[in-house]
Design a protein around this nucleic acid. Sequence first.
DNA 1: CGTCTATTTGAATGTACTCAAAAGCGGTGG
DNA 2: CCACCGCTTTTGAGTACATTCAAATAGACG
Lengths: 191, 191
Amino acid sequence: MNFTKVLQNIGKHISLTQEEEEYFTRSLQVKTIKKGDLVLSEGQHCQYIDFVNAGILRAYHLTPRGKESTLMFAMPDWWITDMASFVKGAPALINIEAVESGEILRLSKPDMDLLLEEVPKFEKCFRVLFQNAYIREQVRSIENLTLSAEQRYDRFIGKYPKLCSKITQKQIASYLGITPEFLSSIRAQRK
Amino acid sequence: MNFTKVLQNIGKHISLTQEEEEYFTRSLQVKTIKKGDLVLSEGQHCQYIDFVNAGILRAYHLTPRGKESTLMFAMPDWWITDMASFVKGAPALINIEAVESGEILRLSKPDMDLLLEEVPKFEKCFRVLFQNAYIREQVRSIENLTLSAEQRYDRFIGKYPKLCSKITQKQIASYLGITPEFLSSIRAQRK
DNA sequence: CGTCTATTTGAATGTACTCAAAAGCGGTGG
DNA sequence: CCACCGCTTTTGAGTACATTCAAATAGACG
């Protein structure tokens, strides 16, 4: 149970008193995750927004034909959730699984609502968090519309070099929206 | 100069006193837009987040080869900006043009920062706004990774039926990430 | 009315996918 | 500690989806 990282993360945006920190950390549920664990399944109601303390999570959608499409990876210090399901209670469109064991801190919707009421400073914190999440998605949309598969691969390894060594090519391919076979052939051309 | 719409939009998330409403509307700059006007150009610093009072805006990226990729359309009651440029001062990645004449209300970054300081309630308002923007982008990412061009077209006309009648097919194609010729052939098959 | 752009159509091309099979690699149990 | 099993990665052939280019037609706007 180590809250240092999440308090630092929050501390980037707002400064909290001792009491506020304690109120906040009491709202969090600690969960150990083992490689392969599903912390959210498609169709479920997503009850939490999760902070990654250690390990790596992956959010992906499964098509009827069994094809995986990876929406995002979450490394330590990242937040992850199915926002539509978390906020509106809609059935989740994604699965979230651990690709590396670790620990997450979970904030439930009711607890988040309470937190925002009791400590309104957190509005700013989440405003900035969601702003940044939106920025990332805007940029990704542009890149997906504009760049070829090969260029997207370059951007990916440029942007997340550490991540690349910890996940499979199949997972990278599914993030890029291409087949593992095609990614393999892109890599083969470069040697 | 009609602030009814934007006050209603804000009112969905927070309730304001008379004074707060006035403070807010004084922060806004009214700008008339004519079809074809560029309200933001690639490479510029995006200074405003814009609320569409009337008309339609389109955000698009232009590749070196002159290919357009549409990131989003903004109809009345929508907010639009190049968030990365607006927040971090980075050069804008997108152009924003009027595809239909109308009027926008512009909030500059300094004015927004002041507003958030003076009337902290607005943190909640923007938190929810950005949350929803993020949701839209998450869903769009999933659809782009998962669906064929034809299926994406169906989703688009299902989601924005009014919009479809007001924009060109070329613009729809550029939103879907396909060529206008290919969109034309998809449509031809259906008759 | 004339011009400019959007849309349609079709042929040739290219990019990425499917399917299948082989090779590599990591983890597990004997 | 090694052998085996399952999954990932590679490779290649054939295919499908989407693009490019070009030319004809239709529509919009001044």
